[in-house]
Amino acid sequence: MELLLFNIFNGLIIGIFYALMALGLSLILGLNGIINFSHGGFLALGGYIAYSLSPVIGFWGALIVSPFIVGLLGLVVERILIRPLYSRDPLFSLLLTFGLAMIMEDLIRTFWGANGLPFNVPAALSHPLSQTYFFVTGYRVFLVVLALLAIGSLFALLRYTRIGVRIRAGNADLETVSALGINIYRLRAINFGVGILFAGLAGVLAAGRLGLTPTMGASLIMPSFVAIIVGGVGSLLGSLLGGIIIGVAAGIVTTYYPAASDVVIYVIMAVVLVVRPRGLLGQEGLLE
């Protein structure tokens, strides 16, 4: 029973990473119309930058600064590489971000080394909070709370700010938004930056939990795709839900049959695709 709880809790945390990543991917997929393969690269970069910054400005500083550095980098990438591709076949942006992901992984390997690096979290966060449930460490609780806060503020941003309303309107009908006099290039750039910001944040949090390796992003991106498909393309809430569902499902399966823990999320996806092709909360006919 304790093992099951442990694995569910672990799964929940992994699911939070999937969700953070899937939310960013989903944002970019919706407004920019791009499957951003380089999302994993930005995530890893977020972790590594935080690793290099934390001796200078400490863990808390790095936690805040690193995602913004990565987000700015995302803005640059969007401006130089992605913007020329908006009017072209989606295949090309797919291939471009795919190549970008390879370059980023290789550069990380060159600068920081191919071996894993430990990322130390403050001692105040690494204590277990409970005697019985040894696995509930401060860092894990902190991670869940921070991720939920970030997700909450993203939804608030989309719901209550002018830019958020425009992003949602753009998702529904970009042409009309453009016709109403809104600079959709700037809107899409901001949207891309916000998505990458989330990747960076997930990267810093993942670094403290899973450690740093050049391939950390690549290994998280595929489950995030699954999360989006399960949750439904076009629904941010769906992506959040999808991420948590597959994370927890993988956690539960780990308890009983560890070898299948990687495969189970794909089985869930296949079932969803057969039973409800648009995903749990998805809209029909989007992006087709």
Binding site: L94, V226, V233, E288
Partner: peptide, 18 residues
């Protein structure tokens, strides 16, 4: 084949990864 475009791409990737 029930989905098209980039959605199709995502599904083929994910199934392949299984």
């Amino acid at each position: 084949v029930r989905r098209k475009g980039i959605y199709f791409a995502m599904i083929t990737i994910a199934i392949g990864q299984m």
